[in-house]
């Protein structure tokens, strides 16, 4: 499989804080790569650094072979990276439809086909098409955030903790959706819920204190009780 995204020795400073201190991992085309690590490990900051929201002070981020480290955020997004933030980033006073529209660069056949696809994946969005994003339930907001990132011409989706605050039955739905979307796009997933992470992840990267601890196949991690106990507090 081709490498889609490569994060190589990345450091990030926010103000005077040295938050990321050496993050490296790769995401291969068509796979789900999971970033794991306890609270404050630097998972969200890693995604924000890939997107140029908190630009790297050292190291290189390559996407489809192109160095995107120094690009502005909108330029990075336009190379084909979509973002589903931890807080979902729904535009509360815009309708579901308008939220989707902001993400669509053009309304050509390809984009509309993508929209049809996500609306089939999340029928709730179709149902609440004219409803304000701010009035959706937590689960619906999550679905809207994923759908919105998907229609924006993304070949890579960065999804930050989609299970956060959702009921188990909704988590199940979100998980199925991600597994379906995986057929069309590469995914980097931040996920604390190990049940979910282990079921949909192909590979994992373990972060701690702003550094990469180790990477590998998800199957290996599932067996590795010691690492799971030490870094994830489970097993």
């Amino acid at each position: 499989m081709n490498t889609m995204l490569k994060v190589d020795g990345v450091h990030t400073h926010i103000g005077q804080y040295h938050i990321l201190q050496g993050i490296s991992f790769e995401a291969k085309e068509g796979e789900v790569s999971v970033l794991l690590g306890r609270n404050g490990a630097g998972k969200t900051t890693t995604l924000k650094t890939i997107l140029g929201l908190t630009p790297a002070s050292k190291g290189i981020v390559t996407f489809k072979g192109q160095d995107i480290t120094k690009k502005p955020t909108h330029g990075i997004a336009n190379t084909g990276i979509g973002y589903v933030p931890e807080d979902q980033g729904i535009f509360g006073a815009l309708t579901v439809e308008e939220n989707m529209k902001v993400a669509m660069r053009k309304e050509d056949e390809v984009t509309l086909a993508k929209q049809d696809y996500v609306l089939n994946l999340f029928p709730d969005l179709k149902k609440f098409w004219k409803k304000d994003g701010g009035h959706l339930s937590g689960g619906q907001k999550q679905m809207l955030a994923m759908a919105r990132a998907f229609v924006g011409n993304s070949q890579l989706l960065l999804i930050d903790e989609p299970s956060k605050g959702l009921a188990p039955i909704v988590i199940e739905k979100v998980m199925e959706a991600i597994m379906d979307m995986k057929k069309h796009t590469t995914i980097v997933l931040v996920e604390q819920n190990f049940m979910m992470a282990s079921r949909i992840g192909d590979t994992y990267t373990l972060l701690d204190d702003g550094k990469t601890v180790q990477s590998g196949l998800m199957q290996e991690l599932i067996q590795d009780e010691q690492v799971k106990r030490k870094y994830l507090g489970i097993g």
Partner: peptide, 24 residues
């Protein structure tokens, strides 16, 4: 209009608008 939509979205969340590929 599209530009109006982007302006309204930007008032609510600038960061998100940029991650959707818009040069704010």
């Amino acid at each position: 209009t599209k530009i109006g939509l982007i302006v309204r979205a930007g008032v609510m969340n600038k960061e998100m608008v940029q991650t959707l590929g818009i040069n704010i």
